[in-house]
């Protein structure tokens, strides 16, 4: 079978991109390979590990379980939109200072989940944080410092608001 292609316009981090891609190509792969947005990581490619989590219309989803062409007409947000090296997002700062990562492979997906989670739960309990992180696998940290980082991030965001 020939490879069916489609040309679509994607809105990623506020910028418009026109891409012609195989219909079967996942959003995760198009972000990384066609748009060079390599902050989104690809782990299991079956929706389990959470490394590829991005926002679709502001809600966290697995970009490995979406076809890129399905994202046309929606707003995609990736970890690149959170902060820059010089100006980290408060959640990124909290991960840095609490040693909430080691190899960093799982981190982009976790950040996308955590920022969205703290929007809905500005003062979460430890149990709520653990449940929020359940959709992410980290093989380095043992999660202790990730939980601490999320607690600290909540405090930082609270302090910003007041």
């Amino acid at each position: 079978m020939r490879e069916p292609l489609r040309t679509v316009q994607l809105e990623v981090n506020g910028a418009a991109y026109t891409v012609t891609v195989p219909v079967r190509k996942t959003l995760a792969d198009v972000l990384r390979e066609d748009l060079q947005l390599t902050g989104t990581h690809v782990g299991c490619e079956q929706g389990v590990c959470g490394a590829c989590t991005v926002w679709l219309d502001g809600e966290p989803v697995r970009s490995c379980l979406l076809l890129a062409i399905q994202a046309a007409g929606h707003r995609v947000t990736t970890v690149e939109a959170l902060g820059t090296v010089d100006r980290l997002h408060p959640v990124q700062e909290a991960f840095w200072e609490n040693h909430g990562l080691q190899c960093g492979f799982c981190t982009p997906g976790i950040l996308m989940t955590v920022v969205a989670f703290l929007r809905e739960h500005p003062a979460p309990s430890r149990q709520q944080i653990r449940e929020a992180l359940a959709g992410h696998l980290c093989r380095c940290t043992g999660y202790q410092n990730i939980v601490r980082a999320v607690e600290d991030a909540a405090r930082r965001l609270q302090a910003r608001r007041t």
Binding site: M1, R2, E3, P4, R6, P22, V23, R24, K25, T26, D29, E45, C64, L67, I69
Partner: peptide, 9 residues
């Protein structure tokens, strides 16, 4: 690419 080739409608 992970998925096999398919036609998309």
């Amino acid at each position: 690419m992970k998925p096999p080739v398919f036609d998309y409608q």
